[in-house]
Write a protein that binds this DNA or RNA. Sequence first.
DNA 1: AAATGTGTATTCAAATTTGAGTATCGGATT
DNA 2: AATCCGATACTCAAATTTGAATACACATTT
Lengths: 196, 196
Amino acid sequence: MSMKLMVLGLLMEQDRHPYEMRQVIQNRNWDHAFKLRDGSLYYAVDQLRESGLIETVEVVPVPGENRPDKTIYRITEAGRERFMELFYAQLEQPAHPQHPMMMAMPFLRHGSQALIAEIAERQLEACRARIEKLERTIRERGEKMPSSTRRMLAGMVLYAKAEEEWLLETVAEAKSGRYAEYRDEEGQWRRKDTNS
Amino acid sequence: MSMKLMVLGLLMEQDRHPYEMRQVIQNRNWDHAFKLRDGSLYYAVDQLRESGLIETVEVVPVPGENRPDKTIYRITEAGRERFMELFYAQLEQPAHPQHPMMMAMPFLRHGSQALIAEIAERQLEACRARIEKLERTIRERGEKMPSSTRRMLAGMVLYAKAEEEWLLETVAEAKSGRYAEYRDEEGQWRRKDTNS
DNA sequence: AAATGTGTATTCAAATTTGAGTATCGGATT
DNA sequence: AATCCGATACTCAAATTTGAATACACATTT
């Protein structure tokens, strides 16, 4: 659904083929805010075409025998209207994120503390790499972006820094074995290994 | 998929029926980290039962004629093993969140700036309400939680505060009309209305 | 020179999510 | 006393996402 907004939004700028859309999204680092999968992209494009919100402009052959051609799409007038609807609807969506990893947090006491600390450290590294990538993009290409895109990237950086801080604390706690707890008779949570 | 981890994790504690799982998730404020829908929950439960990872313990009738009964489930030994697999897999998932609203950001220049500012203000209010709710939960029940759950909620608060800061800036910029831009002949982005 | 990997451009089935609907009880409101 | 609302406990079809597969060109490594 939000993928449709993305496709329409990209076609508001200029005609493109799906693969190109994917590249643009990645180049501009927009894929830090959502999951970009080919399947979803092509599905959205198909649906939009069937609904007459976009139309085929041109089919460009690609060198090679059995290879698929590039299909270039253009947004229609109906598509522009739909874009505005989807745009406002998306803005109203929860600003607060969904955290895949977070879902495992409440269950930390069931796992190996050493392994958990390791994973959290990997996450921390990935997080720092992301911050660096985002900041480099802003540094190098920030001037050339529209303000709203800069705002978006600034948001990602802010979030990523909150994440960095949190992961750092999490690693420390995991290493200390803090999460290895059990429930005693009175329903209180107690540390398992008091050997540290 | 992550819903299955959630179900198995809840059944590691004690036997429950699906509706109760939903209540527990909401009571503990775990639903701030992901989207909780009945459909997904019941689907996950069905799948787990079919795979023999959980089993029916008891079917409790509910007062009333045509009303569905409560079906209480228990985790099996295979379920416990699967839980551990899913747990580690989930921990490896991107720690960085998906932002539904963020996806609309790059298109801000196509919309009405006044309307955008209004929506952002609503988002800000919702964000603050969330912070308050989370902090109240931690204040009132934090002591009684296992450390890992406290860690999770602490993370949510951190994120929410980053979000608050970002929304505040966004509202200010939207009000100033900063996002109403167009591309000039040289490809530079320029403000549309210079009347402010 | 062969094997390996990366980029291009898409398709597809299967898994999962979404959003709406069903029906009842009990408490509060008009 | 009638009506409305929220909680309870699910079900279901339709929409969407996921993950793998295809197939060739080009570049790099062994």
